[in-house]
Design a protein around this nucleic acid. Structure first.
Length: 196
DNA sequence: CTCACGATTAGA
DNA sequence: CTAATCGTGAGA
């Protein structure tokens, strides 16, 4: 039912692709919020100019990227928003991960709406910053094991190959030729993806 | 120590 | 189109 470490201990692009249709669940004292993953991006770690770990950068921030697969890598962006990644890859040295970019809200709607503020349901969790806000994900979850119960991924609905589209990643114009690598995966027909 | 800047978002 | 807002990472 819930995905175990072996699921994440594979190349990041495969993990990113296979996460589509799965359900991300967040448990807090206030209640449970959940959503179906509809958009992801793979980051290839030390060999990916778009990755925080590019070139082997191992710092306080990137430490969890160099740890085991199947954990949350959370960071603050623009001093305002959080982004949620799930660590992946067959070797820890590679420092690969998958960015969760958009969810289709699927549980705890009242809680999600309350945290997201005045947004239509289709935008509640559309975008990496918005989904973290809606699910109540902050730095306290950085390094969190996805088997710990506060945050995990489980089977959602099956996804056929024709439903999946790949495209270049968003917001990495600084990454040279890597900005064209087709490492963004999304459900073609989903109205909940962050961009068309 | 300084300083440029970001895997984003909301709003004009 | 720009502002918001602060931790990070590189370099002096």
């Amino acid at each position: 039912m819930t995905l175990t470490r072996d699921f994440f201990r594979r190349p990041a692009p495969a993990v990113a692709r296979d996460l589509l249709g799965k359900e991300l669940v967040r448990r807090t004292p206030e209640g449970v919020g959940a959503g179906i993953i509809v958009e992801t991006e793979a980051y290839l770690g030390v060999r990916d100019p778009a990755s925080h770990a590019f070139g082997g950068r191992r710092t306080r921030r990137t430490e969890t990227l160099f740890g085991p697969a199947g954990r949350a890598y959370v960071y603050l962006i623009y001093g305002l928003y959080h982004c949620l990644n799930l660590t992946a890859g067959e070797s820890e040295e590679a420092a690969e991960c998958v960015l969760i970019r958009a969810l289709e809200p699927a549980g705890g709607m009242e809680l999600l709406r309350r945290r997201a503020g005045a947004l239509p349901d289709r935008k509640l969790a559309s975008g990496p910053g918005r989904l973290c806000r809606a699910l109540g994900i902050g730095m306290e979850l950085n390094g969190e094991d996805l088997g710990g119960g506060r945050l995990f991924v489980r089977e959602g609905r099956p996804v056929a190959g024709e439903e999946v589209a790949a495209s270049p990643r968003i917001g990495i114009d600084y990454a040279g030729e890597a900005r064209e690598w087709p490492l963004r995966f999304l459900l073609r027909e989903s109205p909940f993806v962050s961009r068309r």
